[in-house]
Amino acid sequence: MMTRMEKRNLAMGLLFASPWVLGFLVFTLYPLIMSIYYSFTSFNVVQPAVWVGLDNYRELFFKDPVFWTALYNTLYFTLFSVPLCLASGLGIAMLLNQKLPGQSVFRTLFFLPSIVPIVASAVLWLWVLNPESGLVNSLLMQWFGIQGPGWIASPEWSKPSLILMSVWGIGGAMVIFLAGLADVPPTLYEVAELDGAGAWAKFRHVTLPMLTPTILFNLVMGLISSFQYFTQVYVMTGGKGTPVDTTMFYALYLYRNSFYYLRMGYASAMAWMLFMVILAATVGVLVSSRKWVFYHGE
């Protein structure tokens, strides 16, 4: 039995929350349910969906090598890009987290690339990595006399190129690391110093444990966005995932199935597989985090 005020609060609360409730029902819950349904159909938007049972999933697993290529490419990218970005974000944050002249200028310089519109940065990198006249290969030639590789255009270098590019956008993670570093109580360092800890020991036994929640946050965010990597590779390969599918990422292949081949049922099945992979990865990280994440005050 609710009291008058509880009833009033419930009514008011729902009234204020109603935009979200409506949005959730129409733009999240309904599509979520329909997406499951579509994944069991053959559907091209124009004609009504036709039930095909598990055909889409069967095709994904047993008949579509590109699906596996896309999955492999995405996992490959994630496996290298996420740790690399975490490490370099943390490294730069640690360098910045000291009383150095020009600290805020440096912070700005490292942060800027992460706010550039992705399309612009993709076009820019396409030019920077241009095999003939791009900046990187010109400099390699000028400084070391090395003929640089074809980067994006080369099957061996296309993924490493994208991984290197992703390091350019670590600004957000870096700022979060900086905030995390600022939260480490200075007294802990003083105590560690009194205990005779050197720079490495302080990092290993004070900084790193205190930063684990921040690392976890950046790791989860990095994983989720890396699995959905799309815009850069769409722009840089004209939506084709070239050369020879070496940059056919999962989200790109899903997009192609949806809007090039109009196989929306098939793409829905792909979306659910992606969701499962992301969920498994996130849950895996969160479960493991109980072992390595240290929370203040525990």
């Binding site: 599509p31 979520l32 579509y38 899903l254 929306m264 992301i278």
Partner: peptide, 15 residues
């Protein structure tokens, strides 16, 4: 927030 956009992409397009 954790839901990947790809999951709702197609039904939203259809809608």
């Amino acid at each position: 927030m954790m839901l990947p956009y790809q999951v709702t992409l197609i039904p939203l397009f259809a809608l």
